[in-house]
Design a protein around this nucleic acid. Structure first.
Lengths: 211, 211, 211, 211
DNA sequence: TATGAATGAGCCTTCATTCAT
DNA sequence: CATGAATGAAGGCTCATTCAT
């Protein structure tokens, strides 16, 4: 893998082609799995030859990391922005879920790969960076729930479990979501948000009764 | 793979050893992943030799199917029993979640493997049987939700999404659950059950207001 | 590369076959060079298949180290014995040269490989051990020269240069020696020994004159 | 590889750059070995681009031949001159050794490559020319020894072995020589020359005694 | 019965060289 | 002239599985 060209004009073309390679790989990995996708299959999918592919990536593993990398950063940025704006926590929750599910919708293959190839990803040297970003994202979610509790908007018996339930339902989404289906990202986000807000509504009848 | 011994005394010992092989494999696959676990590693983990291992299994893939097989049937049986007994749907939901999470707790490695190695499992000829069982389980869950709706116990805006959310949170559990931790299977089951019941409570304040 | 069998009977057969592999590789490397000898060529030379070869070695590089390893130790042992026995230094020199050249004669291919593939060998992690042994051997040679000087048997203007000249002529030998030729190892050893003893004879005419 | 420019002004610049390429390659090959030095490394060392490099050479192998070619001819010319001038053979030996070791000193990298990459060089079609020149050089050395014997200046028990010993010590020199060290080319040449003259001195005491 | 040496197709990757731009 | 993306054959190596002993 030679270093990318530094001249801007060439660099742009290089980046574009590289992106195409990464997306094609994400699609193939999502479809058939990382291990079942041979480099030969990637060559066919990209139309490149063996040597050509390795202009854009260092390793088949590396390809996996590239898929994951470009996945996390943009979502993390949006989450930070939402978290920084001091909207009411229930609004923040909805916004972050919308961002998240739109991200899943936009990068469905990448998300599927990220979910499914944990063992490979965790074996990479890069892994700790990805995990750190993941944790930051989860911490922001948790803080929203905490603020909702503090402000009396939600009453959550076990916040850790609530967070894990939320992570579970969202992370499972790529496994069944298919674009153009009955539900779009926004509807799913609203569904999950309502689910959480209703479940832990501070002023629910049962909530009031048990108080 | 020679056929198992037919004399009962020998058959018992055979079955016991085979179970030990399957469990060891489940542990290794859960820890390192199916592809990263070589047959050689399995040999070391079981203390068997190459020839010895293949007395108990036909194939490495086959091992994966064995792990999955013994996983689904007992849970499916319990679910059928719960479903057949005509308890109130909210009780059925709680019972099935308890059964489910106890199953996860008891077969944590197997569950992790089942979740993580989808691509391999889906490539097996056996796969359609497993999928059929899986779908039966999900259908039973769905029917409980449907009955709860019919009887006015729950008011679910989108039952498909509610089901998928539930599947997501439970299926995600093996990824973070660790035995002897703060929460046991029963507590998690109750947490999820409450979450669902509260979220879709028919007589919630907000539910009534928005109606 | 599986670990070698521990049962003595099997171990013997294993060691014998392994030796045959190493010798065949040494021959091929000596003939065509390390890089020009593909693993496929090694397979043909040994009659093994790809997987079979890798029962005996870990790596093609490893093979090179095996060739070198078994080369140095026996000679070093003989040199130590000669060095320990406190014969007159001129006898020690002759003995060590005989041992050395017989070693070259007996392991001609290995020696050629060792001389010719320096760059590969020096890149190996094992390299520092080999270098240490090599240096010990050279130090023993140097000590013999030093003792010869001390005892007035030789008068050496520049002992370092004398040692390097000796190393040069012996190390060059594998490049032209061919078994069954006009000169055998003993004759060459004597030739080199005489060359050194005459060149630095303490009581030579010119030596005396210049003193 | 386009043909070099024919206009003299351009040709000079071309030759100069080409020389720089060859020297850089010699340095890299000497340092890391021919096979371990990729063309990419050569590009970095020279500052050229792939296309650029191939203006000056036809092939990576070709580069090796260029390194060797410019190595032998000048030394051979000097040797011929020394051989033609009918000085006493002991003076010729000294002169040729001085020329030789100065050549080594001046082209240390090239000499190292020539010594170390025998297998590659011998695979080249060009090889027979180089070998012919090499042999001519060795024949001239041998003739000097023969003349010394004829004239009674030296008494050499085995002239072939004496020649091989000399070739060995000189050819080994590039492996340990380092410019600016304790010994310069002239001192080494004298050391080797004295070594040979003393070893085979016709009128040595022991020589006379043993006769 | 139990062993472990052997199989061999297929894997990922490299790199000297070319040629459209 | 110069560029650097692309070539593609060949490389070393793996590993689930078999079977002679």
């Amino acid at each position: 893998m030679p270093s990318p060209p530094s001249r801007p004009a060439l660099r742009a073309r290089y980046d574009q082609r590289r992106r195409r390679v990464i997306d094609a790989a994400a699609h193939a990995f999502a479809q058939r799995g990382y291990h079942a996708t041979s480099v030969a299959a990637l060559l066919q999918a990209t139309g490149l030859t063996a040597g050509g592919l390795y202009h854009y990536i260092a390793t088949k593993d590396d390809l996996l990391m590239l898929i994951c990398d470009e996945l996390i950063d943009p979502l993390l940025d949006r989450a930070r922005a939402i978290s920084a704006a001091q909207d009411p926590p229930q609004d923040q929750l909805r916004e972050i879920l919308h961002a998240w599910l739109e991200h899943i919708e936009a990068h469905l293959d990448h998300m599927r790969v990220f979910q499914q190839e944990r063992h490979v990803i965790e074996g990479e040297p890069h892994w700790h960076e990805i995990r750190a970003k993941r944790r930051e994202f989860e911490r922001m979610l948790d803080e929203i729930l905490a603020r909702a509790q503090e402000r009396g908007v939600m009453r959550i018996p076990d916040r850790r479990l609530a967070l894990l339930a939320l992570l579970g339902m969202v992370n499972y989404t790529p496994q069944w979501f298919h674009p153009g289906g009955r539900l779009d990202a926004a509807q799913i986000a609203d569904g999950y948000c309502d689910l959480m807000l209703e479940a832990y509504a501070a002023n629910s009848l049962r909530g009031s009764e048990s108080a």
